[in-house]
Amino acid sequence: MSLFGKIFGGRKQEAPSTPQESIQKLRETEEMLEKKQEFLEKKVIDEKQNAVKYGTKNKRMALQCLNRKRNFEKQLAHIDGVLSTIGYQREALENASTNAEVLNVMGTASKALKAAHNNMDIDQVHDLMEDIAEQQEVANEIAEAISNPVGFSTAVDDDDLMRELEALEQEELDKELLDARAPPVTLPDTPNIALPAVPASRPRAKEADKDLEDLESWANA
């Protein structure tokens, strides 16, 4: 550090923020940009409606509306670009922190595996495996011997059974064809009742009313 730096104190190096903090900040910025997008989209719709409203009556105003609409659309396109850049950056950060976490775990697992294999001798393992294979063969022979029926007639003609099944199916089909009726062709009348108008919903007001009811019932319970 230079003499000036020593006397007046150099610029303190800021501690780099953790990946989690950065991810959080990027998310907040994304949310804010998305909110701005919604706001601009509303503006675009408003300007479009105004342009249609002025139409031929006031061409100058209509053109101004379209001009503003175009500006808003440009801003929207710009925000799209920014959002995708931020998205990539956030994903990269998320992947980086995931990779770091995974590597950390893999290192731990590797050590654990090494520790587990410490007390094992490969020759012992081979001998043990041979014993297991031998016993398995004996078990298989016994199982086969007791599963083959001796002195029981097992000769069944598969072709004969197949023919019987086909005959049954044909019989069922004939029955269905005899019972078949012509489908009705008369169509129902269309209702001539006027449909109710869609009520203008006030979701926030409804929510507040529900909350008020909840509170009242809690307070008076």
Partner: peptide, 19 residues
């Protein structure tokens, strides 16, 4: 006490304001 309950239950902001 009712205002505190409304805040804790995260009720509608307008309702909390009025209470």
């Amino acid at each position: 006490v009712i205002v505190a309950r409304a805040i804790e239950m995260k009720h509608d902001d307008g309702l909390i304001s009025s209470l």
